[in-house]
Simulated scan of single mutants.
Amino acid sequence: MLRSLFHEPARADQGLLKTANEAIVHYMDMLRSIPPEERNLQERRYLIWSGSFLRALDELEQSQYAAKRCGAKVSKIFLDEMSEEEREEYHRHLYFYKNAIIRLFSILDKLGHFMNDRFRLKTEEIKARYSYFTVLRNMHENKLYIELEEQLFALKNKNREPVDRLRNERNMEIHTINADLLDDLLRAAEEKQGYDERHRIDDIPSRLRDLEEACDMTYEAAGLIFSYIAKLTQSSGRYDTDTD
């Protein structure tokens, strides 16, 4: 969809995104193979839930791509040096970049809730408002679904630094800035710019690298989760969720 803004053809899935989409579709095909009149409520829920992940991953990739394409058109590091056209491209980059970050953590949290429900992990008993990472910690500490947990935990640790940076940006974007945080931001800006009032933009290539690594982690996690669930369903029958 967004590639049309750049007069480009639609995306051809490849790499980790393609693997994730194929794993989700395979699981959905397994659910669809059950005659509609025989599908129980859980199976109907998981079919709808899985389809929402296909759309969410597509929207994440499109936002990431648009942020990259717009960011590539920005060459100046100070706003006052930019032409009106370059400033517009910079603000388009920010729009899609922030949109991608919000979508990324939304998908991760939805994956966490999906696993919690599918595997009956009861993470809500540990923390009422839990995230994907809370679910992983629950699985790791209680040795639940070890084969999947080890892969996801290693993936999380591998991408800890870029994901932490993006989480901080997400938190600033969606939460009200309190006085302490505002003071921290002002001090950081003063140290960075030496009290120069000119607005220096953030390092676009660096932030896009963080976004790419985090997106790849999300695509890979989705692929691992849905491949594992499909395998579990095939080997254990419909919705046997005992831990391994």
Results as ranks from 00 to 15, higher is better:
R170E: 02
A214W: 15
E173G: 01
V163W: 00
D216W: 10
K76Q: 14
S63W: 11
S206Y: 11
N40R: 14
R69H: 06
P9Q: 07
Y239C: 00
H113Q: 07
I48Y: 07
T134Y: 11
A230N: 15
F226V: 03
K98Q: 14
N157K: 14
K73W: 09
D13N: 08
H7Q: 15
D183W: 00
A12D: 06
V135P: 06
A128L: 10
G71R: 11
M1W: 00
S83H: 01
S235F: 02
L57W: 02
F119L: 14
E197K: 01
T123Q: 14
R39L: 03
Q64P: 00
I24Y: 12
A189H: 05
L181W: 01
G237E: 08
R87S: 07
M1S: 08
L152H: 03
E197C: 01
L111A: 04
R69G: 02
A23C: 06
R32E: 10
V135N: 12
H7V: 12
I48D: 09
E88R: 13
L60N: 13
E81T: 08
D117P: 00
S206K: 10
S227F: 03
F119T: 03
I34K: 12
A100K: 11
K231A: 10
L232C: 07
I77F: 14
G112I: 00
R118Y: 11
Q14V: 02
A221K: 09
E86I: 09
A230C: 08
H26Y: 11
D242T: 08
L60T: 12
L136F: 13
R207F: 04
N99R: 15
G51F: 13
N138F: 10
T134A: 06
E8N: 05
I201H: 15
T134R: 09
R118H: 07
L54F: 12
R3Q: 06
A128G: 01
L17P: 02
